[in-house]
Design a protein around this nucleic acid. Structure first.
Lengths: 126, 126, 126, 126
DNA sequence: GTGGTCTAGACCACG
DNA sequence: GTGGTCTAGACCACC
């Protein structure tokens, strides 16, 4: 279900957060669905309880999930349509693109990377 | 000459490094040109001396600039063709793209952002 | 009859307890009246049996209701005059007010909110 | 500078957060000012590093302060005018007021509490 | 069982 | 020195 890379420079809690967000935006997790418990997920991923807690706390602050004392975390209503996280992600992408261009990245190479990430839906197929 | 963003998650030394490389790939700085002194640049950018020192040390390790004892740093021959940096920039872009996709970014929107950054010069010539 | 908010930071048992007390202080439930059974109420509110059990246990400890083995819970004599709960509610209000003031809430705005909740019946008669 | 109550039901990080917010809204801490370092504050208050870290992380998420790697935390521009935290505080106050009223709190008593928190600026003095 | 708070201490990256 | 991440484990409140 999750692929955690301990040798990556990306913080573990970022990796988990990204993958949970992905499951929600892809529709695998739907509003109202219950997420695995903190301790459960921590055990499965061999991560610390607090690391998972941090992930869930951030997702809750973003309004993507809600906690219910004693029963668990649940996907929030309208989680998929949540614009706050998308807006932040776009902003970050923009700044990264600008830095990459400054470093000498060409438009062609950038598009190639984009296709890598977004799968086979390339611009030539249309 | 430089735009430093203190609130960015990108390390200051990375921002400076990227922008110096940009000046080289754009041809503003040519092989043999002398770069400003460490203290000069640190003063202009209101950054710590050690931060600039780190930048120059990395650029020298990458073979992009060379130091000459007592006279300063100079752009190395063949600096424009150096690809070490580009690889790192691409890696960062990839990770950011993955996070943005997880947050719900569509391929279309991503392309739009890409065109924004790289100007109207899209690969189809339109 | 009851409005339960799962996303509230207020414990579910507190919400139920508060609303039962409200019904008593408002006179809807009078001394001697029988309350719904534990399982009945738990079913109606879609809450856990234990949650309701805890509510009734506290209300009984506060002297607001009394249990009669085999026949259920009944509103106690003099329940309306019981002040144990009020004290707790006031304490919570105080802490919330302090936090709101720290966040920049002005006295005027606080009064406006107060009037919103308590209707137009302001102390000055206006 | 800070008064921490270990026996209070209010989480320590909430107490610290409230008091820092208070210092900002009162103008003691102004935009651009540097806050004490995490370890410094933790030492002064005899609290754990992580507890303070949590406080600062929340304040940063709220846009009230910004972190600069290696140099510390600083009060953000426009921190005093930040509406997100105020809006959240007002919302919480409203819900607490409603619950208090349901528990039997009178308007007069509520106003008395309000005056307690907001000091001598009572409604009769004007 | 669930989430929530707090401590203690190690280790890394940045300035 | 600074902030940032992660682990380990204790203890509490809620359902």
């Amino acid at each position: 279900m999750f692929a955690i890379d301990h040798s990556s420079p990306v913080p573990l809690y970022e990796q988990v957060r990204t993958q949970i967000l992905s499951l929600i935006t892809c529709g695998v997790l739907k509003p109202g669905d219950r997420l695995p418990s903190l301790r459960e997920l921590a055990g499965e991923l061999s991560l610390n309880f607090n690391t998972i807690k941090k992930v869930f706390a951030q997702l809750e602050a973003d309004g993507v999930i809600v906690s219910r004392q004693g029963s668990g975390f649940f996907v929030a209503d309208g989680a998929r349509e949540n614009r706050a996280v998308l807006a932040r992600a776009e902003d970050e992408l923009l700044r990264t693109l600008e830095r990459a261009r400054a470093a000498g990245l060409t438009a062609e190479r950038a598009e190639a990377l984009l296709r890598t990430v977004f799968g086979g839906t390339n611009t030539e197929g249309k």
